[in-house]
Design a binder for these strands. Structure first.
Lengths: 193, 193
DNA sequence: CAATTATAATTAGCCAGCTAATTATGTCAA
DNA sequence: TTGACATAATTAGCTGGCTAATTATAATTG
């Protein structure tokens, strides 16, 4: 995700909404702010995990396994739950296996299937990382009251619902004049290199 | 950023907070929800931009240029404002130049410097994309009241402030038992493949 | 004024995602 | 029972970020 340093201030937003009357200034402002804070939080999480030699993807796989009875799942179920492609999950599992944090168990009944099991070392890694993560997160959110957390949850649910309209095809309630074009447009008379 | 399909439900959170008493359940819950909504919004934005042959990085560069007097800036200023490395900005500029949306202007006084200028085609591209983006965003946020937007802004500011404590070194208020290790841990007795 | 240091942009090469293709296996229906 | 299809995992190859190194130029200072 983009870093979005340098969010637009009032004067910039006014300039843009002057040219583009479709703009809802407060919506744009809070939307960009939300994206930026989320990016920063994600970077902070990366920072925390990297202290323990992990990245978000691998960490999340360990957590998903810990949720399971016996710490066992399959690559495809993990891919769906982590929201990554199966190909990516193969790579995550490769890395975790190399570190001994999970093990591949080959199914003898259906030989297409592989089970993934959290190892003792994997559980130990979680027991090292999670208290650090939880502690940092608790401190980070300390000043946000319980009421504010509830309010935030409610707003997030509304946004969740709104996302489908954001993604809707042109015409389905979204007025668009725009045509599609894949690459070369009007290839101006400048060009230097 | 991770997709975080399948957020933990109450029973999972209880299981984890049983093992890890450091966990603040409502903080974890709202934190993960925030990350997921932001990821989904970012994906929705990608979807919108791709209809016009753009990606977030290039789109943001066009916007930053449009903010400037005369639509002119430099690669390093753009990199700082977009929050990407200068190397990445070189690549973004290459792509935009190839499409004729921006032009490189070589400075004759200081020959290390290059200016980047939004072309007429670049401005036209913005005039095509921005109304679509603003319209979609307005619809997406329609159900979020002005009061809720204010509340959200306030909470985001608090989180902003909290992020530094999240990233703080171990010891600076973060109680950590964890040691660092870069790669090979206890390389268990399993391992197949 | 020559050598060092600083600055701007770019290039080279890494990494973690992705999609599409491949390999292996299982299932079902003519 | 075999041909068509379905499913699971992996591999191959692409992309857009990144850092570190390189190239070119300017500024500073002994």
């Amino acid at each position: 995700m983009l870093q979005l340093r340098d969010l637009p201030d009032k004067s910039v937003l006014d300039k843009f909404s002057g040219r583009y009357p479709e703009a809802d200034v407060s919506a744009v402002s809070v939307f960009l702010h939300l994206l930026r804070v989320a990016t920063d939080l994600s970077a902070a999480l990366d920072n925390c995990l990297s202290r323990h030699g992990l990245l978000q993807g691998r960490w999340w796989v360990l957590i998903l396994l810990m949720r399971e009875k016996n710490g066992i799942s399959t690559p495809s179920a993990l891919a769906d739950r982590a929201g990554v492609s199966r190909a990516t999950m193969t790579g995550l599992i490769d890395g975790l296996e190399r570190n001994g944090l999970i093990a591949r168990l080959f199914d003898t009944d259906d030989r297409r299937r592989v089970s993934i099991q959290l190892t003792a070392a994997g559980q130990a890694k979680l027991d090292e990382v999670m208290p650090d993560y939880y502690t940092r997160l608790r401190l980070c959110m300390e000043s946000v009251t319980e009421a504010e957390r509830d309010a935030l949850s409610g707003i997030l649910l509304k946004l969740d619902a709104g996302i489908s309209t954001f993604t809707a095809a042109a015409g389905e309630g979204v007025d668009i004049h725009a045509a599609y074009r894949s690459d070369d447009q009007s290839s101006a008379s400048f060009s230097s290199t």
